[in-house]
Write a protein that binds this DNA or RNA. Structure first.
Length: 663
RNA sequence: GCCUGUGUAGCUCAGAGGUAGAGCACUUCCUUGGUAAGGAAGAGGUCGUGGGUUCAAUUCCCACCACCGGCUCCA
């Protein structure tokens, strides 16, 4: 719509009005050329002050960038991902600006916002940057912030961009530009720093009130291990100083929940250089914990018709040639064990599936036998690159709570749904927040996978439909599939926000093909079964790691290696304490005594810190009355009870916790 | 595997070219106590491993090993 204004012929001025639709469906008219910031102002000044980023017709948009057509707008504050993203993206540029000022001749790679903060990849040239330089960099960033520099967006032609960055010797940027389409290239500048960037950014660096350079790391240029390695500088910024302090406190707290630290403190597991890196030693308490987890899952799986099997830790090379794993991973595995006489080659078992296929083959199968569900807590060995190893989350020997389901095409969906039920049950039991991810094949690189297009299509479709049916929100990620089939993965975060894959379900048409598995159908014809690989925990190692971080070591009663500690008021009551432990032992309650010659206050403190769920204080009063004084870990409620009453209560609590109701 | 960084007592850490220190834990003794640290004494370390420089190396240099944070990878 065009509204003429003071229509002199010489100086025709027209104001073009545009319609802007808000997320709530409201439509308002504004003059063309209005910026999202001004639109926010039209709502309220206070709101406008908080707006950091916008989306216009689905495209990310600077709040200072004019709009000249009808469309839908969304405005984002700090509380929104998009708002933080713009704030941190601008902060990445600020970091780069500071680095440019401080270091002669450095080259810039890319510098995006990430989940918590941002980074910039640089080639430092002749300079060396160490963590000792962080305060200097932070100081420079704050100096630049004080200039309240405006962030300016410019369109630039490809040729001009190549010349501009080429003149500055920014060959990495030139490489990026050369792959961009002319007419769609923009730069953002603040102060003396100009970056190739598609935005969006906050209008000035002024709102950045607190900066922290967090760490340095090596990172391959464009994620390619064949190419040069850059220095990645990580940082985070906040609009308020207090928010930075809070963030740093959270980080500190998270470190206390690190499963490696807790595993040591709680005497659950250990590593030894003599045994070898990535090879965890499960200590008695850790083993007890692990066994309990296995027991829980075994019970659930029995209800779902799983059959427990056991297979050897090594397998003939031919087994893996048949499965295709040899061709794919043979070179990157622990190398084969050779027999001294016959010259045979055996591999340490890197997965259980081929063994389970062989179990399937041990006798002719009828459709009436299916589904067959073989489960095994199978310990496998994988050569992980040394730099990859990480506590219990990434190891070279681990135990999968594995199972392989062989079924008919008609049964596939129901079996898949049942597995989803088991996994979601397990995760909810432990209160894990998970993200589901459908891992699909990369259609651009089919050579990385085995199997026919048709089978891949079927398998991927089956997973997508199963998620829809269950109403499970799952992100689809191409290129993340296993080489033999697509997966539905369940990811859980650790204490500092790293995502780890725990549960997984994989549909596989290929292994049955390779192992020539078959069953006789009702039509008396041979048919090929479909295989489902699945593991709710993923591995006991990784699950325990995430469980520790999630609970900060405060394991639920049924899992706690020690459920009760008895604290005698003085050594005179040690015998009574032993009596209490014996009584509890009769009810399968795991109890220990603190017999040290210490005051009760001291014993309470030390045992509170050991995260044992119940502390029982016993002295003269209790000994005379066959009672215990109960103190719940964490300074909870206290009461005096008969030993038998306490034992009954604990038994009931545990029974309730391990109860499984299938739906 | 690659890039930073780190490696000293069981744990957390300090230290310096002249063969090592604290706190906690541990042992013994005193104390025998009522809901988050009682007191004293003692023991404990080839300073990650192997070379080199030096009159002298745990300290400086080199290599290796392990670990941390990332990258790449993850059946």
């Amino acid at each position: 719509m065009i509204v003429p204004l003071y229509g002199t012929i010489k100086n025709f001025i027209a104001i073009i009005m545009i319609n802007i639709k808000f997320p709530d469906g409201n439509i308002k008219q504004f003059e063309s050329g209005i910026t999202p910031f001004e639109i926010a102002q039209s709502i309220s000044e206070g709101f406008a002050r908080m707006v950091l980023a916008a989306k216009f017709n689905g495209a990310e948009w600077d709040i200072s960038r004019p709009i000249d057509e009808d469309g839908e707008i969304a405005l984002y504050k700090w509380e929104d991902e998009e708002g933080k993203h713009a704030f941190w993206h601008t902060s990445a540029h600020l970091l780069a600006e500071a680095l440019q000022e401080l270091y002669e001749g450095i080259q810039f790679g890319i510098g995006p916002a990430i989940e918590n903060g941002f980074y910039y990849d640089i080639d430092p040239g002749e300079n060396t940057i160490t963590s000792a330089d962080f305060p200097k960099i932070e100081k420079k960033m704050m100096e630049l912030v004080a200039k309240k520099e405006e962030v300016i967006r410019r369109d630039i032609s490809k040729a001009d961009a190549l010349k501009f960055f080429g003149d500055k010797g920014q060959t990495l940027k030139c490489e990026l530009i050369s792959e961009l389409q002319d007419g769609h290239i923009t730069t953002y500048s603040q102060g003396n720093f100009t970056d190739l960037c598609k935005g969006p950014h906050v209008p000035t660096t002024a709102p950045i009130k607190a900066v922290k350079v967090l760490s340095l790391a090596g990172a391959y240029w464009r994620g390619d291990a064949e190419r040069q390695q850059l220095v990645r500088v990580y940082g985070i910024t906040f609009p308020k100083k207090k928010m930075l302090d809070e963030y740093l406190t959270v980080l500190e707290e998270a470190k206390k929940r690190d499963h490696r630290k807790l595993g040591k403190e709680m005497e659950l597991f250990a590593f030894s250089q003599n045994v070898g890196q990535g090879l965890p030693l499960w200590l008695p308490k850790g083993t007890a914990l692990r066994n309990r987890l296995q027991e829980m899952l075994t019970n659930i799986q029995r209800r779902y018709g799983y059959l427990q099997v056991i297979t050897p830790h090594i397998g003939n090379k031919n087994l893996y040639v048949t499965s295709g794993h040899y061709a794919k991973y043979g070179k990157d595995s622990f190398q084969p064990i050779h027999t001294p006489e016959e010259g045979e080659e055996y591999f340490l078992k890197p997965m259980n599936c081929p063994h389970h296929c062989e179990i399937f083959r041990t006798s002719p199968r009828s459709y009436k036998d299916l589904p067959l569900r073989y489960a095994e807590f199978g310990t496998v060995y994988r050569y992980e690159q040394s730099g990859e190893l990480h506590g219990l989350t990434r190891v070279r020997s681990f135990t999968q709570d594995d199972a392989h389901l062989f079924c008919t095409p008609e049964q596939l969906k129901q079996e898949f749904l049942n597995v989803m039920d088991i996994i979601t049950y397990v995760f909810s039991k432990f209160g894990f927040d998970y993200e589901a991810q459908i891992s699909l094949r990369d259609p651009e690189h089919k050579e990385k996978y085995v199997g026919t297009d048709e089978n891949w299509e079927k398998a991927q479709q089956a997973i997508i439909e199963a998620c829809q049916e269950k109403g499970l929100k799952a992100k689809q990620v191409t290129g993340e599939a296993a080489f033999y089939g697509p997966k539905l993965d369940f990811m859980v975060k650790d204490a500092i926000g790293r995502r780890w894959q725990l549960g997984t379900i994989q549909v596989d048409y290929n292994l049955p093909e390779r192992f020539e598995l078959e069953y006789t159908g009702s039509d008396n014809q041979k048919h090929r079964p479909i295989m489902i690989h699945r593991a709710p925990f993923g591995s006991l190692e990784r699950f325990v790691a995430v469980l520790l971080e999630h609970t900060a070591g405060h394991l639920p009663l049924w899992l706690a290696p020690e459920q009760v500690v008895v604290l005698p008021i003085s050594e005179k009551y040690n015998d009574y304490a032993k009596h209490v432990v014996n009584e509890l032992d009769k009810c399968d309650i795991r109890a220990i005594i603190d017999e040290r010659n210490e005051k009760i206050g001291r014993k309470i403190r030390d045992n509170e810190l050991k995260r044992i769920p119940y502390l029982l204080i016993v002295g003269e009063k209790e000994a005379n009355a066959e009672e215990v004084s109960v103190r719940k870990q964490g300074g909870g409620d206290k009461s005096s009870e008969k030993i038998t009453t306490f034992a009954t209560e604990i038994t009931a609590l545990v029974a309730d916790q391990i109860k499984f109701e299938s739906n």
